[in-house]
Every structure is written in structure tokens, then in C-alpha cells.
Design a protein around this nucleic acid. Sequence first.
DNA 1: CCGATGACTCACG
DNA 2: CCGTGAGCCATCG
Length: 103
Amino acid sequence: MHEFHGFRDRVYAVVSQIPAGKVMSYGQIAALCGNVRAARIVGGIAHNGPVDLPWHRVVSKWGYVATGYPGGVEGHKRALKREGVAIKNLQICMKDSQWQPHL
DNA sequence: CCGATGACTCACG
DNA sequence: CCGTGAGCCATCG
């Protein structure tokens, strides 16, 4: 049951636990999954991800993602703001909204 | 098994 | 956080 089959399953686990109003960066997730340098992998997983997860809560280090997101920056931004993410000057306040799971 | 891909990140300009 | 270039590594076909 809790058998993880690899990096991808871990990413699913982490992303699914991100609460509304909070966000995580790709690099942060990758690090939690055991590979600091696998930020790109998280992105690849998101694209192929057959699982419904709050990928909109996963952002780049600068506090945004637009590349490939359905709706683009505008749609993404609106979705996050609606969930209560701290937005500052059209950008996410990472230091206020970046989240981390309990160990 | 191997080559291509990528929703990243960092460095430099 | 723009443009380009390079590093990085799991996943896909």
C-alpha cells in the first residue's frame, strides 16, 4: 500500500498534501523527494501526470508558472489568489505562501 | 536498453 | 525575471 515505486509516486504524495493557500516550488518538491536537482523531473511528471493533483499550487522559484499551464499565467494566478495565496505585485509572496509538509 | 523530452534552476549579460 | 547557454536526471516511447 505505501509502497512507493519511485520518484514520481513521491511527488504525487507531496503535491497532494499541499494545502489550499500554500504553494511549493519544483526544486523544493524535488528536494523533498530526494533529488535537489530533479526540479525538471517534477515538471515532466506534472505534464504526464495521470493523477488529479493541485499542480496549480506548484510554482517556479520566482513564484509563478506559465509554461504549459492551461490558461497561462492569468488563469493560474487567479486560481491561486482564489485559494488565498498571498499575491504581491502580480507575483506570489513565496516567503508567505511557500509550504512544507510535516516531517 | 537508449534517445529524446521537459510545467526547472543557475550563471552571465 | 528577459535571453541565451549549460547542467541536471526521472520518465516516456
